[in-house]
Simulated assay, not measured.
Amino acid sequence: MSAAITAAHAPVDAGPSRVSRTLALAGAELRLFLRNRTAVVNSVLLPLLLVAAVPALGIGEEVGPVGPQLVVTAIGVMLVFLTYYNLLTTFVARREEQILQRMRTGELTGLEVVLGIAAPTLLVTAGQIAVVALGVAVIGEWSAPVDVVLPVVALLCGAALMLMLAAASTAFTRTSESAQITALPLLVISSSLCGLFFPLSLMPEALATAARYLPLTPVVELSRLGLSGRTWDGDVVDLAGAWSAAPLPLAVLAGWLVVGAVLARRGFRWAPRR
């Protein structure tokens, strides 16, 4: 009798925690990522070449010193050309291989699957930006940021937004190859009108106003406010001025996060498209 009572009150093995399951999936995805030479080259080399084109072509001289502008450019370029595009192709490839569908039949929740698959790309994104920042310091172009909170918020929220938009874009992307076409609107329009390569202050007023509401623009605005103390129209500001100019891009970014979450929840597909 006592043995039966003891057995009834014995702790039940709940299995791996959510964090450990997500980390295990992230480790497997990282190994798969490193085995794909094309993905590694595209993720490491091409974004760095795009960033290197900024000082080589003299782009961005109107929006502040070269060092902070390089880091701002790295944040914008990595988020779009690395985080968004890589995650879109990865999600679609895993879906069409029925890997997502099989994962959903086990212990993993939907959020764990998405975060586990996205973790390697997010780590590479952060690593690339860190490499650019280190390079800026090595060549002597680093300057103390006006505020460190704004660029950190921009990077974290921007990465979350690109993850959501990549998940939402799987709704109209049939294959990983077709992602080259479906990703073009965000890759081309958003990156070209966000102020990275062409200052918004030099655009027609109507176009500049509309461009400030694109997904990547608030990320660039907040990063530039914090790193170089420059507003979207080129004014130089201090810490107080940076936060005075921050409410609009913060609100736009928050709005896009809500939109991205709704679109990802409704559009992300777990089963292959037929």
Rank of each mutant, 00 (worst) to 15 (best):
V63K: 06
R269Q: 15
A271H: 15
V153E: 07
V237K: 11
E29W: 00
Y85G: 14
A93V: 03
A264D: 09
I129W: 12
V262N: 05
F33T: 07
G67S: 07
Y213A: 12
D147L: 03
T73D: 10
L202G: 13
D233R: 04
V219T: 06
F268G: 07
S223V: 10
W232V: 15
P47G: 14
L46F: 01
A246G: 02
L257I: 04
E112L: 04
T231L: 10
N36V: 01
A271G: 15
V252Y: 04
L216G: 05
M203N: 06
R94T: 07
N86M: 03
V71W: 03
G226S: 12
A210W: 01
F268D: 03
V71R: 00
L216K: 06
L122Q: 04
E221R: 02
T182H: 15
L88E: 08
M203C: 10
L239E: 15
V41N: 05
E97W: 06
L263V: 08
E112I: 01
Q101F: 13
D238A: 14
D13G: 12
L150W: 00
V51M: 14
L79W: 09
S192L: 14
A26Q: 05
V41S: 05
L165A: 08
N86C: 03
P145E: 07
A242R: 13
T90Y: 00
A210R: 05
V188T: 09
C157A: 15
V252W: 06
G226M: 09
G110V: 08
P151L: 09
L48K: 10
V258S: 09
L34H: 02
R269L: 14
L239R: 15
V132G: 06
F81T: 11
G255K: 01
L25H: 03
L163Y: 02
M78Q: 13
M78I: 09
S228D: 11
V220Y: 08
T89R: 10
A159L: 09
T217D: 06
L49T: 07
A53Y: 02
E62L: 10
W142S: 02
V136S: 05
T175Y: 15
V124K: 05
R212P: 00
L46W: 09
W142V: 01
I5C: 06
L23M: 13
D235L: 11
S190I: 10
A264N: 09
L23F: 01
V146F: 03
V77Y: 00
L161Q: 14
L108G: 05
V19P: 00
L79R: 12
R224N: 11
S169E: 09
A133C: 11
G226A: 11
T22F: 02
A246L: 02
E61C: 08
M1Q: 07
A4N: 08
Y84W: 07
V77G: 04
E61D: 14
S178K: 13
A251I: 06
V51G: 15
S20R: 05
I99E: 04
A208G: 12
W243T: 11
S178V: 14
M103I: 02
A159Y: 06
S43L: 02
I129F: 12
L23P: 03
D235Q: 15
L193I: 00
T105N: 09
T22R: 09
L187K: 05
S228Y: 02
